[in-house]
């Protein structure tokens, strides 16, 4: 039954996304345009005599960083964004009186957005390859495993974010954290080694840093699972701590919701 519901949620949310066609198309168009931005940025740096970054071209480095950041943004923001949308349009209550577990009813509407995140990553990598990104050394098996392990860690931030939206309606510190701190300190657009040593402490406290490093290792240098194993272990550790904590926060938020009856408030 849960699988059937998940499929229904994905279909339903794809239909909703497709119903706003301009928004749907521009999202994909934006992804392609960002590839061009990275390409010309790389061209500029090459004129200045910039060499290779982490064993590959800067363009390839940027493509992976850009794709991952989109994935990061969607997976961490999906739950809260969809939840708030449901609250605003008044569909959350009818959904919560269906014979669906509350957690699935609250988080399930984001399932399409998560899938779309994976799709957008693949598109960016594909377009990047067509324009000159070099994935000839890529170990795709390792890359997929890194993405899956990263996803479980990123989802924790998304669940925290949803819990904040349930309780506070507006004001989502997780979203702020991802959009500001994570982008600067996790090596999305430049290697974290460029940061001063004291700021690098922040980088190493973020799971995204390890996810990106492992992903670039797999895609740019063809590293095996054993070679990125250290980063995967750290990511697993983050997940082991963050996932139960985020689920606990969500359970608290649902209890708060049931006690206050503030579901329809926004």
């Amino acid at each position: 039954m849960t699988a059937a519901k998940l499929l229904a949620l994905i279909t339903h949310n794809f239909r909703l996304a497709w119903a706003y066609k301009l928004n749907f198309v521009t999202r994909y168009l934006g992804m392609i345009i960002s590839v061009l931005l990275f390409f010309f940025l790389d061209q500029l740096l090459q004129r200045g005599g910039a060499g290779q970054v982490e064993g590959g071209t800067y363009f390839t480095f940027l493509i992976i960083g850009g794709a991952f950041s989109k994935f990061l943004e969607l997976s961490s923001h999906a739950f809260s964004a969809n939840l708030r949308e449901e609250m605003l349009q008044g569909t959350i209550e009818p959904l919560l009186v269906t014979a669906t577990p509350v957690t699935l009813a609250l988080l399930g509407p984001s399932s399409w957005m998560l899938l779309e995140g994976v799709l957008l990553v693949l598109i960016q990598l594909g377009v990047g390859t067509a324009v000159g990104a070099d994935f000839s050394q890529a170990n795709w098996g390792t890359a997929v495993l890194v993405l899956l392990v990263s996803l479980s860690s990123l989802i924790s931030y998304g669940i925290f974010s949803a819990a904040f939206v349930i309780v506070f309606k507006r004001g989502d510190p997780m979203n702020w954290f991802i959009n500001s701190v994570a982008y600067v300190f996790s090596g999305v657009f430049f290697p974290v080694e460029l940061l001063p040593a004291w700021l690098r402490i922040i980088s190493y406290a973020l799971p995204f840093t390890y996810a990106l490093r492992a992903l670039r290792g797999a895609l740019m240098r063809g590293e095996t699972i054993a070679e990125v194993g250290g980063d995967l272990l750290v990511l697993g550790g983050f997940t082991a701590v963050l996932l139960p904590l985020s689920l606990f926060a969500l359970r608290y938020a649902i209890r708060h919701l049931k006690q206050t009856g503030e579901l329809a408030h926004y």
Binding site: A8, H12, T98
Partner: peptide, 8 residues
Amino acid sequence: QFYAAMQN
């Protein structure tokens, strides 16, 4: 269709 699926 959506609500029917959610209601099993």
